[in-house]
Design a protein around this nucleic acid. Structure first.
Lengths: 212, 212, 212, 212
DNA sequence: CATGAATGAGCCTTCATTCAT
DNA sequence: AATGAATGAAGGCTCATTCAT
């Protein structure tokens, strides 16, 4: 491992430790010392990469958002149909959340309600990510898969809002035990929003169980 | 004004000041001194009623939830039809939020994501409040207004999740300027979830624009 | 002792402890903890009266300058003759320094060379104090006691500069052991500056511009 | 440029950067990193030549004092008369200060009031430098140019004290804009101290304007 | 010779909380 | 009942300094 790689690995470890400890204790109750110790570095070393404690917090999402973004861009190319794309998008998002509960807790329990975070570069990346959902919706509206009367802004709000609501319940109350169990019933409800008419499905949804 | 009333008024004033200041600065950045000064009482007096700063925070929702609860109980008796009741419930909730933005910010930006708050009596009141929604849903399912295939738990998650998502956007980003503008488009989407079939409406929705 | 008096006494004690410790260790090497301990108060109590460590430092001179100022104003009324007043002024200043070596060290070793201190209210008081010297000089020039050709600004600079030079030597090198021993020889030299002694001039000074 | 010369040049550059930054920010607020960066060397390299930050500070005067010393020794040989020598000495000192304001600020605002500096080799060089003034004074006393009643120690204190007082005012308050403007009025005052009798001048002052 | 990387040590400052009055 | 006074406890952050390479 070269010096650069080692350095990068340590930076990454700090971010992981920070995510874990922030997710457990919240921002204020977590201490830099604790995070540094968990990452096996000195307190001062944390400040080599992150100018302040808050900056450390705000730096947690970047890598995750990039990864999620890349995954999505890759898979969406393979999928045809707006609803299918929407399905895949939400599925991957939920899957990513379920596989990274600490990042998810930081994102949904701490960052999303932080007034300063909104003005951050990291928040811009979140908004960019949401544009993927927007594109699916507008594509669906154009193709006729999604009923054109539905206001796309509020449709997105409903999709994201309900998904996050479920994830937050999972984080805080442990229900459902396996987050992915929530996907199907949730998306089924979303489908009712989207579907123009039941008989209109030109291509069956992947997750539909009984299509005839 | 009796001594008791005066005392009660001061307690109330502390809670209002706390709500305002917590909503502006967040829990950690707000100080007891600041809240006490805003309520025109001494720091020490705050501790007469609230054992800790956190207890003060957790005490904010009670009065609001009771009021909202009472309002709802009163109005729901006058309304017939599960969907109408649901409509009224969500409308009143949104109205209450829009009229009490400071309480709303405390509730949705601070309390709802606080792990300790969940074990609180105040949180139980929130869950009780949600039972009203649940009852509407089950009533609708039984009466046939709501499609029986819809999972009631996820339906509620979608309704509450999307509503709160919109409210949080309003709090953090000021969109829409008037929160109530969001109600109709949001509920219209919810209706699509609920409606069994358009022709099935035995009794028309109060707010449906084009009923034939 | 009333509460107010006790409070004032503690504030005073903090200032004395600060003067002592700052004078021994310098500003940066002194710690608030040390000063608080020396004054038998908690660290936090120091901040009740002094917003920052620097503010504490800058607050040290006030009381001393007021006292010196009052003393001077009182005595100068009793004294006639500009040179006598000048003598008294410098004598009292030196005496005050010799009796308050810790304040003197703070003033002459720390504050006088601090760029921020110059913009302070306390520094204004120092300048006010110097005006007393200026008034003596101008009075002497008018009355004829002081040779009118002498530039008053540079005369003051010489008087104050030499006095402070001696005091600093006393502070840093302990010479002379008793600071007041320095007064007479120093003032004798100053007298040579001041004295017109018209009759003594057997021949005019080279630099005198207008003789006779 | 040989390796040695290059090394020496870098050392010199560090000292210059240190003088500049110490003079601007004071000792404590300046950082080694900042100085190293200004000198285009690494932090660690500073420690090749200067064992500690304080040692770096104390190393600043050496070169300057040597240069001033050499200049003086060279010129004083050419000058006859104790008062003329004194004049030249003070003039050159002030000139050097005016041409090296950063060094001057370090010397007069930081070092001269530092208790540790007194025990330094560098401080010894300052005292050696002052011996030149002492020699001028004793020469003047012997030759009769300076009144023998004047205490030489306090005469020197007055000369140096007033000169430094003026320089410090120039550094801190920018008055006078051109430091050398202060020389003539200041020295004129000093002459009044020194002159035994006008007719005693065996040799005329260099800068006498109108001698007859 | 030169330095990038790493850190130990320590201080100012803040406040929630207490308690004598 | 009400509070002014007082503080214990804690944490973010900074750098001078070191050392492996």
């Amino acid at each position: 491992m070269t010096g650069l790689e080692k350095t990068e690995a340590r930076k990454c470890k700090i971010l992981e430790s920070a995510a874990r400890i922030f997710s457990e204790k919240g921002f204020q109750d977590a201490t830099i010392s604790e995070i540094a110790k968990a990452a096996s570095v000195s307190d001062a070393f944390v400040y080599e990469y992150f100018s302040t404690k808050e900056n450390l917090l705000f730096s947690i999402p970047r890598k995750h958002l990039q990864q999620l973004h890349e995954n999505l861009n890759f898979h969406l190319k393979l999928i045809r149909g707006a609803v299918n794309k929407l399905h895949a998008t939400l599925y991957m998002q939920l899957l990513y959340y379920s596989e990274h509960p600490e990042f998810t807790a930081v994102l949904l329990l701490i960052l999303k309600h932080n007034r300063k975070f909104i003005d951050t570069e990291a928040h811009k990346e979140i908004r960019d990510y949401l544009k993927i959902v927007d594109r699916c919706i507008s594509e669906g509206a154009e193709s006729g898969e999604i009923h054109p009367d539905i206001d796309p802004y509020y449709l997105r709000a409903t999709l994201i809002g309900s998904l996050e609501h479920i994830v937050i319940n999972w984080l805080l109350r442990g229900k459902p035990e396996d987050l992915m169990d929530a996907f199907e019933p949730m998306f089924e409800i979303c489908l009712k929003l989207i579907q123009k008419k039941p008989e209109a499905y030109s291509c069956p949804l992947l997750f539909q169980k009984n299509v005839q």
